[in-house]
Amino acid sequence: MNIMSAETRVAAFPPALAVDGVSHAYGPRRVLDKVSLTVPQGQFTAVLGLNGAGKTTLLSLITRLFDTQSGSISVLGHRIDRAPGEALRRLGVVFQARTLDLDLSVMDNLLFHAALHGIGGREARRRGMAALADVGMAERAKDKARNLSGGQMRRVEIARSLLHGPSLLVLDEPTVGLDIASKQAIVTHVRSLVRDRGVGVLWTTHILDEIEPSDQILVLHLGKSLARGVVSDVVAASGKDSLRAAFAALTEAP
């Protein structure tokens, strides 16, 4: 019988993302205060927060657009500040703002992303077509990105973020501005990535309908972590009967 120590298990299966005591300030303005969070592999974790909660700053730190001022962030055990290359190559990201180059075709956008991860030639094209097929956009590969709808652009961005085979996918309010059908398609696809490929997902949102009872959540408000855990536990701890009521109680002004 193969008995594995706790340390060995942690080393062998590190969480997709570990955020530990992260604080951040823009000058005198503190926007994150000792935030901690873990996203296990193959788990959907949501960061819930109103506008200005610090969600986008947290994602900027996870993707190393900014360096952490205090605390630590690791992707699959690789510290983002000490080994940024190793951490970033295991990370896929979909930003809230559209990041496709509108002048390029859909496939050219994907090939550019592949090159930024050191993947070129036929392999990049093969992966590009496979990723587009997964989101039902293969037939639009040659179209200019500017000719896509908002929902289609988002699907292409998700396909692009998966091109290099990341273990962690980070999405910043990916359904904002989309119609109901597009929202549903994106939520369903991302959940299938968790289920079928074991990708760890960090999803920031203020739309509570996107959360399922079995999800892990972190409630963020004005830069502070107010609650953390499985949805049912957070709801029970708040003494309310639904996530909506618990979220409202946690984030309402004192």
Partner: peptide, 18 residues
Amino acid sequence: EMGNMRMLLVSPFPRWFL
């Protein structure tokens, strides 16, 4: 402003190289 720059900056290659 459009956000494209972020895709360059989150590449795992060293930022100086990018």
